[in-house]
Design a binder for these strands. Structure first.
Length: 612
RNA sequence: GCUCUCGUAGCUCAGUGGAUUAGAGCGCUUGCUUGCGGAGCAAUAGGUCGCAGGUUCGAGUCCUGCCGAGAGCACCA
């Protein structure tokens, strides 16, 4: 926000150092980390170290030398300052740092004016001229959507929002796993034992499919002390399931139709959950549609000498990745891209899909939001893409996320030991409603349900985002749905309070939103200053989160901002401010804070209600 | 055996080269509502940043080794 001033000063420092033969190191600017005044700072430690290495000047320790340089620079800037850098109040040299302070009123006005002028676009980055595809939401079909899938989907969506807002053209892609033996198992169970029994509600039906899977798994699993009849029964079922899978593979129309119907039920549930999470996919890649075309790329890779066909020797089609890359130490190893029987694998399909992403969607960067345990597979895929000659392979990125388990142990779809997203969601609403009944009796009942969903989801979503993506999570519903402390509702509450002040100020006589210009030409309190400072960092937080592909950066920022607002709220009573001019300025500051909190929450895929 | 991730307060986690004093939340202790909403604020207590070396003017942050935890390693996804 203050690049112009920074650049001007930087030029003067460079000119001075050049004239005085000082080996200036790169200037890294940062905000001055003390509250009370604003400005930017840079240190001269590296420069002093450079000087020391060259044996110039006295033998003073580096910190002392740095301080000396900072003082020289300060003097030269002060002398040149008259009118040359507008908005700068003073410059000082402290502990090897050069601190450049802004004029308080100018700084405050510029920050608040910019937020209120840009509104929902405050913090949006300039176009980067690159297209990014984020692939996420790849649940296995017919197994219902659990809390682990929710972590995936939330991370993916927030990442998509971040890169989009930071300035990348963004494509959201879902890749549901709609084939395989696990899927057919449910079809078989349905056809044999449950045809026509399905519930009508979208979510009940989706969850019911998971129950069929659990039932089938129990039926097909070898038990201890089986009597011969049981063994025979089990083996007969197993044979039926395998036969159905074979028929599906052969394109049998009856099995295909059944499969299509169940698959659609499962997709309906997925689409509704995405709607609940406010996720709008641009592209759907179904595993079943990628399967057949992916076989063609195997031939291409063999022809190019990247893959080795060992089928004549009774093997499979493999890629010796390390060898082809000329690596001596094992890193990517060797992997199979086509089974001996000619059927495809996960890797086969991912390679084919990557080709589609590059050639049909022209993506420059490709992000995969996938469980960390698949890290090696994705690294292998990226390495093969590189061998294949795709320059975009360098900009493929695996955003891995840690395993989500339950306090009682790992989730297991086949055992039915899962925390279903919809069930957690319903529980969240229930809990918020009970809090609402106590704290927000004045909110009309029909509004409460909607707000409860926003707050409940806010808690759940934030709990998924406030832990670094590569960390495992033990999903404890009481922690995830906590409303106190470092949580989604805490941030939402800051938004509600800001809104409450603005609303009340209008009721008390103000006609419109227009508060006139901001004039911060009074002595600002510490809390006002900290709030303005925090708001001004939002654009940087957006860029950092997007560049590092780390939703956590934004989650942490949003909490910080809310925390600063809550402190301000308690320390400064806006509506009771006597001086009209000061009151107006403070109201504009509150409006700017509300806007920035709303923008941050939007990036986190969390609603910002006006009441709660 | 090899590869990757991680080890920071009682617990759950931020912080990945520079500033007085390593930060939050939960839990503990104590204050604050006849004040814009207490889903809040303020204060107190709690840390040899796994261990040992090294690089650097400067290391929780980078490198090496060790210890400990988890994950992955060719026809599953």
């Amino acid at each position: 926000m203050f690049q112009k001033e920074q650049q001007l000063i930087e030029e003067k420092i460079k000119a001075y150092c050049q004239a005085n033969d000082i080996a200036l190191a790169e200037l890294k600017w940062q905000p001055i980390p003390f509250s009370g005044e604003w400005g930017f700072a840079t240190s001269f430690f590296q420069t002093a170290a450079n000087e020391a290495k060259l044996g110039k000047g006295d033998k003073a320790p580096v910190p002392q030398k740095a301080q000396g340089i900072a003082e020289q620079v300060k003097d030269i800037l002060r002398r040149a300052q008259d009118g040359s850098v507008e908005g700068i109040s003073r410059i000082e040299a402290v502990k090897g740092y050069l601190n450049v302070y802004f004029k308080t009123s100018d700084y405050a006005r510029r920050v608040v004016d910019e937020v209120l002028a840009s509104k929902a676009d405050f913090g949006r980055g300039a176009s980067k001229g690159e297209r990014v595809m984020v692939e996420y939401a790849q649940p296995n079909m017919l197994h219902s959507f659990h809390i682990g899938h929710a972590r995936n989907t939330i991370l993916g969506e927030v990442l998509a929002r971040l890169v989009e807002f930071a300035g990348f053209e963004t494509i959201r892609a879902s890749y549901p796993g709609d084939l395989g033996l696990g899927v057919i198992t449910v079809v078989w169970m349905y056809e044999k034992f449950h045809k026509g029994q399905e519930p009508q509600d979208v979510h009940e039906r989706g969850q019911w499919l998971l129950k069929l899977y659990v039932e089938a798994t129990a039926m097909l699993e070898k038990k201890e002390n089986e009597i011969p009849e049981q063994t025979a029964q089990r083996e007969a079922f197993e044979a039926e399931r395998r036969e159905m899978y074979r028929q599906w593979d052969a394109g049998d129309s009856y099995v295909r139709e059944l499969w299509k119907t169940l698959r659609e039920w499962s997709l309906e549930e997925l689409r509704d959950i995405l709607r609940m999470l406010d996720v709008k996919m641009d592209v759907w890649f179904y595993e079943s549609e990628v399967d057949e075309p992916s076989k063609a790329i195997v031939e291409e890779l063999i022809a190019r000498g990247i893959a080795d066909d060992e089928r004549p020797q009774g093997g499979a089609v493999i890629v010796k990745i390390d060898e082809k890359l000329g690596l001596t130490k094992e890193k990517y190893r060797t992997n199979v891209i086509l089974r001996g029987d000619g059927t495809t694998l996960y890797l086969t399909k991912d390679l084919a899909l990557a080709k589609v992403k590059f050639e049909q969607y022209h993506v420059d960067r490709s992000i995969y939001v996938v469980d960390v345990r698949q890290s090696l597979h994705l690294q292998q895929a990226f390495a093969i893409l590189k061998l294949w000659g795709f320059p975009q392979a360098e900009k493929c990125h695996h955003l891995g996320y840690g395993f989500v388990s339950l306090p009682e142990g790992a989730m297991s779809a086949r055992r039915g030991r899962v925390a279903l997203f919809k069930e957690v969601y319903d529980e969240a609403i229930k809990r918020v409603l009970s809090v609402e009944a106590e704290k927000s009796a004045d909110i009309p009942a029909n509004e409460r349900e909607k707000i409860a969903a926003q707050i409940g989801l806010g808690a759940l979503v934030y709990s998924m985002l406030s832990v670094d993506n590569n960390k495992d999570i033990v999903f404890d519903i009481n922690e995830a749905l906590s409303f106190d402390g470092r949580t989604g509702p805490y941030i939402q509450n800051a938004h509600v309070r800001a809104n409450s002040i603005l609303k009340k100020s209008k009721i008390e006589g103000r006609k419109s939103d227009d508060l006139g210009p901001s004039t911060f030409d009074y002595e600002l309190t510490k809390h006002e200053i900290e709030l303005i400072e925090k708001i001004s960092h939002f654009p940087n937080a957006v860029q950092q989160a997007a560049e590092e592909y780390r939703p956590l950066v934004m989650a942490a920022y949003a909490y910080d901002l809310a925390n600063t607002f809550h402190s301000f709220y308690h320390a400064v009573n806006v509506l009771q401010t006597e001086d009209e001019k000061v009151k107006r300025a403070r109201l504009r500051l509150v409006a700017a804070a509300k806007q920035t909190i709303a923008n941050a929450l939007r990036l986190l895929d969390i609603q910002a209600p006006d009441l709660m």
